[in-house]
Design a protein around this nucleic acid. Sequence first.
DNA 1: ATGGGGGCCTGCCGGC
DNA 2: TGCCGGCAGGCCCCCA
Length: 283
Amino acid sequence: MPELPEVETVRRGLLPVMEHAVIARADVRRPDLRWPFPDHMAARLTGQTVTALRRRSKYILADLSSGETLIIHLGMSGRMLISGAQVGGFHHDHPAPEKHDHVVLDMANGARITFNDARRFGAMDLTATETVMSHKLLANLGPEPLGNAFHEDYLIGRLMGRNTPIKSALLDQRIVSGLGNIYVCEALFRARVSPKRRAGALSESAVRGLVPVIRQVLSDAIAAGGSSLKDYRQADGELGYFQHSFDVYDREAAPCRNPACGGRIARIVQSGRSSFYCPQCQR
DNA sequence: ATGGGGGCCTGCCGGC
DNA sequence: TGCCGGCAGGCCCCCA
């Protein structure tokens, strides 16, 4: 499910068919995802030019010529599919709508963008571009982990005095926005920090070590997504789902990838979520 | 303020 | 083959 790197990869995949393109027709096939769609969403999208396609945390933001921004969240199972565009030298026709195809955007350039979301934890809303960052869904997000505002002293300050496990703290989108369960597990493994450690009890140097590791984990995943993008688009037009290889995530009982270790990956549950880690390496 | 838990949905997988 | 419980990478909301 999409965390920051997957959302960024979806955004990059949408750019060639969506940015600076005109929405000729919007088909809203059900009244809601996680929440009701905004009033008259189809009409407010129809005829608009997408002037920019941005990302904030796990949200994709499509700025429209009307002065509104379409906020898109993929939730757990949201996917974007592109059809009907010149993709990788092949022309794809529009497939028949499938189950859970909830919103279909037909672009004037011939591309069709389909939002499919089985679990419907995703969301869409429309709001004024000028105040989009104050939108309820975006207002309380912490800094982008790949941006300048996320740095060692910032994280030290935010973790200070916190009794919650570091795993939970890094999942807290108000502290840093864009990480999900997978990349928190991966970052803690690379930093050799146990997910059970209390956030406020980490040494300053441990927190300092976390920052570049988080950046690297996300950068690596974005790079992997980018390299798989071309193949996926050629295959079936689906964006955002790639098989990354993880060091710890979903590797319970498998050998630790640290060659000097010899331990096995463990799974524990923290606030209802699985944490995967190496009890030997991560302290 | 902080930390923890419930709930939203559907699909899939493993066990019987 | 079918049924059932458990689980899933997110996030809001409520409670103590």
